[in-house]
């Protein structure tokens, strides 16, 4: 298969059916009937919020907006559109005060450290809202960013269940359109909005359209890196992506436990999460 022939089109109605079933099942079987979603106004969280509302009922979903001082005003506005469209409950918890207390000693130039603190502060707020509202924290990470490690460990990567983690970013857009996520959200350049002017594609150095096709061949179709070059991808681009996937694998697994006993969690004490339910 040539790189430019890769087709990531999906049947969004089928994805919708499976993912709402997944959210309903994996929420209710652990004793919850409600969900908490951090709603940034971007496409991933808007889609997650919409799916959760359809799966659990809008009244059972709490959308949490967590702006920082430098967050773009559009973020809040776009989140408001989704809240209005879905009819979910909402709360706005600004993180500026809590984050600024920690940022005081971190130079402006260290954007990644500062961004990680914001991502992790939002995690703290979400888990607190989880306790307050009695809802499971929905993950919003997609397959592209999980594979590339374009995520903050224990920050935006933290969740109880993740409905979108097996959809590439370009597929997320297709499903979001199916679910009625407003066009203005679908058309915005994806951004973590951790600093002014940040965009995913600017920071990564390539577009989602390019990298999704490459990841699809590498991961889903088990192409070797050389096969991807033969399929027409630039060798340096292939090397960069393969290295990102490898270097960030630690974010996708539980921390290794040093084995000492005769039966150890993760090695030979193996139970499904849905044990007994």
């Amino acid at each position: 298969m040539k790189g430019d022939q890769v087709e990531l089109d999906i049947n969004p109605a089928l994805a919708r059916k499976i993912l709402t079933g997944f959210i309903r099942s994996e929420t209710s079987r652990v004793g919850f009937d409600r969900a908490v979603v951090g709603l940034s106004g971007g496409v991933d969280s808007s889609l997650t919020c919409t799916l959760a509302a359809e799966a659990l009922g809008a009244e059972n979903v709490m959308a949490v907006r967590m702006p920082y001082a430098t967050s773009t005003p559009e973020s809040l506005e776009h989140a408001a559109l989704v809240i209005e469209m879905t009819g979910v409950q909402e709360v706005t918890v600004p993180i500026t005060g809590a984050v600024d207390a920690l940022l005081a000693d971190i130079p402006e130039s260290q954007q990644v450290r500062r961004g990680n603190i914001m991502a992790r502060m939002r995690m703290i707020v979400l888990y607190d809202q989880s306790a307050e509202f009695g809802g499971l924290v929905m993950g919003t990470g997609n397959k592209t960013e999980i594979l590339l490690g374009y995520t903050t460990q224990f920050g935006d990567a933290a969740s109880a269940i993740n409905p979108l983690g097996d959809l590439y970013k370009t597929q997320i857009l297709l499903l979001a359109a199916e679910m009625g996520v407003p066009d203005v959200i679908l058309e915005m350049p994806p951004s973590a909005d951790l600093w002014v002017g940040q965009t995913d594609e600017g920071e990564l150095g390539f577009t989602y359209e390019q990298v999704d096709k490459l990841l699809y061949l590498l991961v889903d179709r088990r192409y070797a890196p050389d096969d991807c070059v033969k399929a027409g991808f630039d060798p340096a681009f292939v090397d960069t992506v393969v290295e990102l996937v490898r270097l960030n694998h630690f974010k996708r697994v539980m921390p290794p436990i040093a084995k000492l006993s005769s039966r150890t969690i993760g090695y030979d004490f193996l139970y499904p999460r849905d044990w007994g339910t």
């Binding site: 049947n11 089928l14 994805a15 499976i18």
Partner: peptide
């Protein structure tokens, strides 16, 4: 387990 989401009516 279901797998292989593409444009088809079923997985």
């Amino acid at each position: 387990p279901g797998r292989g989401l593409d444009t088809g009516d079923a997985l």
